[in-house]
């Protein structure tokens, strides 16, 4: 390929950066980059899960007692929101792959909608906790849980907080992709940003799939 691919082809798609030979190479690079980044994210969250294992091992009774104060129905509702948003995200990628602009827009909007709904539910959960006096760490001020509950809630706020931060970043990325889709930037020939933001969004879902049972359903 090389020189042939580089010089012989006069038409040069606008999305192709100069240092790649072909769209295929560029798309494969972007996707590999995203997966490598996902591996990084998994190790990042591994620290939080390891902290959870350690503290749960040290304070089993406290964890059982404290998790009762999390609202399972809220958690379950958020799980449903995230899974559904994952579905609409996958459908948006599929729409981009099949150059179906309209469907891509609708599905991206739905995804953003579910992501916002997730944030709203999270907001109610947090504000209810704060109302009771359940603050992170040394600001904890709720006396009705036996044992060492500030450790559990400290961890709860950090884990769900880091996840929520990823959701917020995801919403930003989804908005960007949505606006680009509206300009007609994506088609079957070039959809790699949609695909990679999709991968990121599924990762956010993936982490929640583990957070939900560990925090809300530990009985």
């Amino acid at each position: 390929m090389s020189q042939v691919a580089d010089h012989a082809h006069t038409e040069h798609p606008p999305h192709l950066h100069h240092h790649f030979h072909s769209s295929a190479q560029q798309a494969a690079s972007a996707k590999l980059g995203m997966w490598v980044f996902i591996a990084q994210e998994i190790l990042f969250f591994s620290g939080l899960f390891m902290a959870y294992i350690a503290l749960r091992y040290l304070y089993p009774k406290t964890f059982l007692a404290a998790h009762e104060h999390l609202d399972v129905s809220m958690g379950a509702l958020n799980t449903v929101f995230l899974i559904t948003s994952s579905l609409t995200m996958a459908l948006a990628v599929r729409a981009a792959q099949t150059s179906n602009k309209k469907w891509a827009e609708i599905n991206l909007l739905l995804t953003i909608g579910f992501a916002l709904a997730f944030c709203v539910v999270k907001y109610f959960e947090y504000s209810h906790k704060f109302h009771l006096g359940i603050f992170p760490g040394k600001y904890y001020a709720y006396t009705h849980i036996p044992g060492n509950p500030e450790v559990f809630f400290g961890l709860y706020f950090v884990m769900t907080g880091m996840h929520a931060l990823h959701v917020v970043v995801g919403i930003g990325l989804l908005l960007w992709i949505y606006l680009k889709t509206r300009t007609g930037a994506f088609s079957a020939a070039y959809y790699s940003p949609v695909e990679n933001v999709g991968l990121y969004w599924h990762l956010v879902d993936l982490i929640w799939i583990f957070l939900f049972p560990l925090l809300y359903l530990v009985k």
């Binding site: 990084q40 190790l43 990042f44 591994s46 620290g47 503290l55 040394k138 450790v151 400290g154 950090v158």
Partner: peptide, 24 residues
């Protein structure tokens, strides 16, 4: 790629530990 994120989360937890006292 595989080790640095663990440092990142460790230092972040340390910051939370210092600022909020989350008890990890």
């Amino acid at each position: 790629i595989l080790a640095t994120p663990v440092l990142a989360i460790t230092l972040l937890l340390l910051i939370f530990e210092r600022a909020l006292g989350i008890g990890i």
